[in-house]
Design a binder for these strands. Structure first.
Lengths: 162, 162
DNA sequence: AACTCTATTATTAGGGC
DNA sequence: TGCCCTAATAATAGAGT
């Protein structure tokens, strides 16, 4: 029957980068899990499509040691997303339902979008995959003709949807 | 001095798609905002890089009427991300610091990754941009040679980081 | 690191405007 | 949609194991 509190319970914390590294790691795992739970709930309650990728602070320079890991995870995630979309949308329709003008427009749109991505995205991917090991000036590396992908690099199954 | 409660307060809800459409909309905005706040906090507290995109249920078929909107938003977002990465990392190093073997490896990695993305991502982008207007069989449209980008399609500034 | 426990803070359902 | 209010549920900081 002690009058002492066993725990002070949750304390308010300041909204800035945590200085204590081990506290930071604990908070990171807790809040990351919370974030994915929230995302999952929003998705189920409201039938929303959500994409969520979290890179841990340490992971930016240490854990991603080569592009193979990334490629593997990227491939898995893309396969998953594709299945999900296939399940959700109609995939039985045939391309011959489009007339010639539609096809042309469609092709043009795709090409334009690809070019746009190409111009902007190249540097991002290079950063993700190589910053931690190779120093270089990205601007000099085939700057405008590699259409690319960014953001789809999950880690430890932390991309949502799962 | 009424003994009646003014409000029952928060009620527990079942984890399934909400049936009442207007409740769903309200919950969607509230929880979406909450989700972005949580993401923001995790990012600040733990110095984590987070990518979060939320598509509202209705938006999947109605608001995205053409690829131009998407391209605009995609471009804006990519510019923003690029700036952020440029600010965070060292961009002064030069490619001539890489030796020939490194450059070769680097080039090969990029090409492999591009091909991987190409194989998987094509259908996803097509879905995002065209499902709501055009019926077609994506599998038939240049299935394997359009390297592409998926997930980077924000809407209404809901991509994080802001 | 992952799990407990606890007390506290944070979020939010339901209502009104 | 957005904001307010209230009372409830949910998340989590700090500590121990």
């Amino acid at each position: 029957m002690s009058s002492e509190r066993k725990s002070q319970g949750r304390q308010k914390i300041e909204m800035k980068k945590m200085s204590n590294e081990s506290n930071l790691q604990v908070t990171f795992s807790r809040r990351r899990r919370g974030l994915f739970k929230k995302a999952s709930e929003l998705s189920t309650l409201c039938d929303a499509k959500i994409s969520l990728v979290v890179f841990s602070p340490s992971e930016k320079f240490t854990k991603i040691n080569n592009t193979l890991d990334i490629k593997k995870k990227l491939g898995d995630e893309l396969s998953h997303l594709r299945k999900e979309f296939e399940a959700q949308f109609c995939w039985t329709c045939s391309i011959d339902k489009m007339n010639w003008a539609q096809l042309e427009m469609f092709k043009k749109d795709l090409e334009e979008l690809r070019n746009l991505v190409a111009q902007h995205a190249i540097n991002l991917v290079i950063q993700d995959t190589h910053t931690q090991t190779l120093p270089f000036c990205v601007e000099s590396v085939s700057p405008s003709n590699i259409p690319f992908q960014h953001q789809l690099i999950p880690q430890q199954g932390q991309m949502f949807p799962p």
